[in-house]
Deep mutational scan, measured.
Amino acid sequence: SEFSSRSGYGEYVQQTLQPGMRVRMLDDYEEISAGDEGEFRQSNNGIPPVQVFWQSTGRTYWVHWHMLEILGP
């Protein structure tokens, strides 16, 4: 990996993601499973900070930056 740390990767995702971009989950996290795909909606200063609309659940759920792989527009 070109990223030395999880936080470095998270910063990359945070700087790159734009609303509407497709993402894939890298880790299991509460209701969301690794491999689930969705659409980035928004972020804020909460914890976790990233709101994604997940195809698997049909609704939005908040996750962490480093848990997401960017699939593209």
Rank of each mutant, 00 (worst) to 15 (best):
Ser1Ala: 11
Ser1Ile: 09
Ser1Arg: 09
Ser1Tyr: 15
Phe3Thr: 11
Ser4Lys: 09
Ser5Leu: 11
Ser5Trp: 09
Gly8Met: 14
Tyr9Lys: 10
Tyr9Gln: 13
Tyr9Ser: 03
Gly10Cys: 12
Gly10Asp: 06
Gly10Lys: 09
Glu11Ala: 12
Glu11Gln: 09
Tyr12Trp: 14
Val13Trp: 00
Gln14Cys: 07
Gln18Asn: 05
Pro19Val: 06
Pro19Asn: 01
Pro19Met: 05
Gly20His: 12
Arg22Ile: 07
Arg22Thr: 08
Val23Cys: 01
Val23Ala: 03
Val23Gln: 02
Arg24Gly: 15
Arg24Trp: 02
Arg24Tyr: 11
Arg24Asn: 02
Leu26Arg: 10
Leu26His: 00
Leu26Val: 08
Asp27Ile: 15
Asp27Thr: 10
Asp28Leu: 08
Asp28Ile: 05
Tyr29Ala: 08
Tyr29Glu: 08
Tyr29Thr: 03
Glu31Cys: 11
Ile32His: 00
Ile32Cys: 08
Ala34Asp: 00
Gly35Phe: 01
Gly35His: 00
Gly35Met: 05
Gly35Ser: 03
Asp36Trp: 11
Glu37Cys: 07
Gly38Arg: 03
Glu39Met: 08
Phe40Asn: 07
Phe40Pro: 03
Phe40Trp: 01
Phe40Tyr: 07
Arg41Gly: 06
Arg41Ser: 02
Arg41Trp: 13
Arg41Ala: 03
Gln42Gly: 15
Ser43Gln: 09
Ser43Ala: 12
Asn45Tyr: 06
Asn45Val: 05
Asn45Met: 08
Gly46Arg: 15
Ile47Ala: 12
Pro48Cys: 08
Pro48Leu: 07
Pro49Glu: 11
Pro49Val: 00
Pro49Ser: 00
Val50Ile: 06
Gln51Ala: 06
Gln51Thr: 00
Val52Ala: 03
Val52Arg: 00
Trp54Phe: 15
Trp54Glu: 07
Trp54Ile: 13
Trp54Lys: 03
Ser56Lys: 13
Thr57Arg: 08
Arg59Lys: 10
Arg59Val: 06
Arg59Pro: 00
Thr60Cys: 10
Tyr61Ala: 15
Tyr61Thr: 15
Trp62Cys: 09
His64Glu: 07
His64Phe: 10
His64Arg: 00
Trp65Ile: 03
Trp65Phe: 07
Trp65Asp: 01
His66Pro: 01
Met67Thr: 03
Leu68Asp: 08
Leu68Arg: 01
Leu68Tyr: 03
Leu68Ser: 00
Glu69Pro: 03
Glu69Val: 00
Glu69Trp: 13
Glu69Ser: 10
Ile70Ser: 00
Ile70Tyr: 03
Leu71Ser: 09
Pro73Gly: 06
